[in-house]
Amino acid sequence: MKSILLALALITPAFAVGFDTEGFGQRLNGWKKNRTAVYDFTDASYRTHMPTITETTDGGIYISTQVDLIAFGDAGAISHIDMTFSRGGTLLSAQLRSTIGRKTIDTGLVRRPEEPVPPVAVEGQPAPKAMPFNAAEELIIELFNRYDAEMRKVSEGKDAEKRDLFSRLGGSKNAKSANLAAGLRHNCNLMLLHVGGGAK
């Protein structure tokens, strides 16, 4: 019994995909003692917390990162980026959630898209070019399309937020004027760069 288990353990490949937390932190001004990184991105200040990494049942990893938009020392908008990778390092799904004041934006879980069926060549016509397809890129594009749509829904209503004089003069960006989506995209791209092991 024991030998069979040992054999199985040897046959099953070791945990193949990993996340380079140190490298990720380096790109964001370095991790501080309280496990956060504070940096500026397009005239707004952000704070990224050290990501939580959990192994999934099929040998892949699930990474969850919290990104705060800083306004006057406090978190103006709190966002979470969740990504799931396969054992080979392929991005399987992603989700974005943001809480801005009382409102919440949730893109829902976006799964890896299927590769499109290549167009059929017709006799007599030049062979159609197969469009390059990067599943991870398509996933991220779909994720942010949904995020922008949700953000539009939330901002469509009248601007019901009250800002006193000091808040207006203080010049800190709130979630609307800062390009929050760009800040989150920056974090997503860096997370994808620092996932190691296997093709994307």
């Binding site: 006057f72 103006g76 937020e161 006193d164 000091f166 808040s167 203080g170």
Partner: peptide
């Protein structure tokens, strides 16, 4: 409507 964060909150 909520008040937005302000410098004197602290």
């Amino acid at each position: 409507p909520e008040w937005a964060p302000s410098p004197l909150d602290a």
